[in-house]
């Protein structure tokens, strides 16, 4: 986990507190790039949970980071005739959070410069909290049997998620 240093984040006074609208900050290790506004995060969902299999999932919820906040997600249906990765790329997705995924699909997403955090399980809200707190590698967010976080980074760069606790320091 990276130390954020002097950057301090506060909740907006006008924003109602909920797991989704707490501040989120992305750090790129080894650089001074602090956070990425406008970053889009896609989560494949099924009944408000992470869909078990990305390759067969029907809907995707897209969250956008704006002013250090995660906006409430918009839900989209995967167009059946379109390649999923192409669809996500056309939506400008930067990060995909999903359940089980085949190697072929994962490679396809990677080719399209989409960072994949796969084999996640649980409710969508919990996963967003896990992402915000940088805890997605913990077993409680992973599918049964996963011992470590399956992570794909794009172009060799690595992102980590800073917690608001870190930020508040």
């Amino acid at each position: 986990m990276q130390q954020i240093g002097s950057v301090i984040l506060y909740l907006s006074k006008n924003t109602e507190y909920s797991p989704l609208n707490r501040p989120i900050l992305f750090l790129k290790i080894g650089t001074d790039r602090a956070y990425i506004t406008g970053m889009k995060i896609a989560v494949t969902t099924w009944n408000d949970r992470i869909a078990p299999v990305y390759d067969a999932s029907k809907t995707v919820t897209v969250y956008v980071i704006e002013n250090r906040m995660v906006t409430a997600g918009d839900c989209f249906a995967f167009p059946s005739a379109t390649n999923r990765a192409a669809f996500l790329a056309s939506c400008g997705i930067d990060i995909l959070l999903c359940g089980a995924i085949s190697t072929a699909s994962c490679e396809e997403l990677k080719r399209r410069n989409i960072e994949v955090h796969s084999f996640l399980a649980g409710s969508t809200a919990d996963i967003i909290i896990g992402l915000r707190e940088g805890r997605l590698s913990e077993r409680c967010f992973l599918m049964p049997g996963c011992r470590c976080r399956r992570r794909r980074c794009r172009k060799g760069s690595e992102y980590t998620v800073a917690t608001s606790t870190d930020a508040d320091k």
């Binding site: 869909a51 078990p52 299999v53 067969a56 029907k58 359940g99 599918m143």
Partner: peptide, 10 residues
């Protein structure tokens, strides 16, 4: 989450 089949969701 254990079986992870394409049939689960659909």
């Amino acid at each position: 989450e254990v079986f992870k089949s394409n049939m689960c969701e659909n």
